[in-house]
């Protein structure tokens, strides 16, 4: 019975880890996972209640931009399963979920280098225009970093939480901290590559304008985008008038342009 349950937990974990494959459709949220975990371990009702409780606790945990939230998947599945096994209430599920989520997150950062390495292989397939290899590389890049850590949750379910959490905590702290720091550094490469594509002398100042608007005024990108659109409209109009003046014969045609 426990073996079947462990297998089902493994399947549930896989689905939750691959939630981005299903359109980032929130199937990895505690309210969904709690109910399904409850169903697997034999107490659907408690699972639903615990899922709801954990959902409210983790409501702020969404990945917006580059922010990676705590690992609520392991927290919810194991917290709910252990609390139901112990015959305890949702508070126990909540209390159990936090150390598990923290310990798991530490280990899962180790998948980052692997994912980056796989992803760069796809760059080569794109340069070669090899669609088949590219598409295969795409799925490998998506699956592999998720699969290598897949056994942790089912094993923790099978052997109990203490054994697994203490094992996870043995990883030296500086590696996790280091990968988190690198998470702040690596986007510099992404933006540098993008800038190489779209930057030229005429418009390079606007990169710095955007950068320092955020640094000095603390406006979020949305705000900057609004000002950028206004600025672009104004400057395009000026540019238009200048070019209209330089060939005044055509001046009347170019007057109506609606910038988006």
């Amino acid at each position: 019975m426990v073996v079947i349950q462990t297998l089902l937990i493994a399947l549930l974990t896989l689905a939750a880890r691959c939630h981005t494959m299903f359109g980032t459709s929130l199937i990895n949220r505690p309210i969904v996972l709690g109910a399904l975990t409850g169903l697997i371990v034999g107490d659907l009702q408690q699972g639903i209640i615990m899922g709801g409780t954990l959902e409210l606790a983790f409501v702020g945990a969404v990945s917006i931009g580059a922010y990676i939230p705590p690992d609520m998947v392991s927290g919810t599945i194991l917290g709910t399963a252990f609390a139901i096994a112990a015959g305890a209430g949702p508070e126990t599920a909540l209390a159990l979920s936090y150390p598990i989520a923290a310990a798991y997150q530490a280990v899962s950062t180790l998948g980052t280098p692997l994912g980056l390495w796989l992803m760069h292989k796809c760059d080569r397939y794109a340069e070669e225009g090899d669609v088949k290899k590219f598409e295969r590389g795409y799925w490998i890049t998506g699956f592999v970093p998720k699969l290598i850590f897949l056994p942790i949750i089912p094993l923790a379910f099978y052997f109990g939480s203490d054994a697994v959490v203490s094992l996870l905590n043995r990883m030296p702290a500086f590696i996790q901290t280091g990968i988190n720091i690198a998470g702040g550094l690596i986007p510099a490469l992404g933006f540098a590559m993008l800038a190489q594509m779209i930057m030229n002398k005429k418009v390079v100042v606007f990169f710095f304008l955007g950068y320092f608007t955020v640094q000095y005024l603390g406006i979020a990108t949305t705000g900057v985008a609004i000002f950028a659109v206004i600025l672009a409209v104004v400057l395009v109009q000026i540019e238009q008038r200048l070019s209209a003046r330089s060939n005044s014969q055509n001046a009347k045609d170019g007057g109506e342009l609606d910038e988006f």
Partner: peptide, 21 residues
Amino acid sequence: YGASIIGLMVAGSMTAEMVYM
């Protein structure tokens, strides 16, 4: 021209938001 103004300002502000050192 207009799109690159917006694009670069957005890229600049995202760099400021996402790159940490």
